[in-house]
Design a protein around this nucleic acid. Structure first.
Lengths: 204, 204
DNA sequence: TCCTTTTTGTACTAATTGGTACATAATAAT
DNA sequence: ATTATTATGTACCAATTAGTACAAAAAGGA
């Protein structure tokens, strides 16, 4: 026995007018710009293009379930993209350097929004400890990817720095978190690039 | 002509039963643990120990004015303390190092709360752009203190690193922002100390 | 066609939100 | 004592919140 989550053509009953992944993606946009608490259910439904009936049938957990699914969906897409880029890269360490340096080139609108997952950590109150834990796990996943790249590069002597890969991985996630807060206060600040270059000295 | 904001003994009328700075300080605690949106007016008044009548008379701008005042009051106290500690220190650079390393020793409860000012940057939605700007300014003030210390230490040859003081100042604020997010996801993580040591290598 | 199943849209609700109105209390000045 | 002034506590309110109830719609299968 398994749960049918989508409306395949052989299923009886009125057909769904929306694709779950697609509407979750639209919810990401609302949550990202407005924050979890500030994004109202009406606003989300409006953006998702569905009514309350459909929504509360598909997302029994309401707003919270939608948010958690949006976190996971966003992070999974992010991880997959990063892993793919790394897999086809000649120089994974350089790719990570470029990845961070690109933060300085983002448009102001993106600079103001921060990291979708990191925002959850800071915006959720103690009452949503479980959701916070999910976000923490998703960030840890990215950290793990960094750590693996570093461990491999050290083994291949492509990275001089001999610090523990776990520490370097956490250092990078910490840098990520920092930049995504710092950018908000002064988007496009000219010194950001130099700060990033200084911070990435450890990757050599 | 000037505005009288406090109830000095020569003023007519019923005397205030509270001190504004004190109740703002209590509001800081609520905002810090619950976040701006999630902290309800009732909850704040309860913690402040005053009724609605008194509150909306003293804080005409309501919850928002209270929050902005709490940000400024917190930051001013922080700045004063830091400047004082620096003024009596034999080795200001070492003081900054200790300041950051102390982040790893905070109790779990404090680790989870983040930076009071940084939280504002991440928690406020676009509708509160003005308040966000205030928070950005307060962080910039701390950054300025760091920058001055670094500039002076370089001039006195007590700091080998010859990078621009402005860049190092922003580097440190960025480190601060990062740690205050990272800690939330894994308070007391054993690698945090090593990450801090790695990050503070630039201060030598 | 008629029954079953699933989705949809709308009307509704109970609770909470930040904020206001206003009568009363407590003080200083006259 | 009376008046002017300021602060307080309480009752109230309009708007918004997330969420529910339910009848109608749209499909497949018999």
């Amino acid at each position: 026995m398994y749960l049918r989550t989508v409306n395949d053509s052989k299923m009886a009953g009125r057909p769904k007018i929306f694709d779950e992944k697609e509407v979750v993606e639209k919810a990401v946009n609302v949550f990202w710009t407005k924050g979890y608490e500030t994004a109202s259910a009406d606003e989300l439904l409006e953006a998702m293009g569905i009514g309350k009936g459909s929504f509360y049938l598909a997302f029994k957990g309401g707003k919270k379930e939608l948010y958690e699914k949006s976190l996971r969906q966003y992070a999974n897409r992010f991880d997959k993209q990063l892993l793919h880029d790394l897999s086809v890269s000649e120089d994974p360490i350089q790719l990570i350097r470029d990845f961070f340096m690109a933060l300085a080139d983002d448009p102001k609108s993106k600079q103001m929004k921060g990291c979708y997952i990191g925002n959850a950590l800071v915006q959720l109150s103690d009452g949503d400890a479980d959701t916070k834990l999910i976000a923490a796990g998703l960030l840890a996943s990215v950290e793990g990817i960094f750590t693996d790249v570093i461990r491999k590069a050290q083994a291949e002597k492509r990275l001089k720095n001999k610090a523990k890969p776990e520490v370097l991985g956490k250092y990078l996630i910490n840098l990520w978190n920092g930049v995504n807060v710092t950018r908000r206060s002064n988007p496009g600040y000219e010194h950001l690039r130099e700060v990033l270059e200084m911070s990435l000295q450890v990757l050599s």
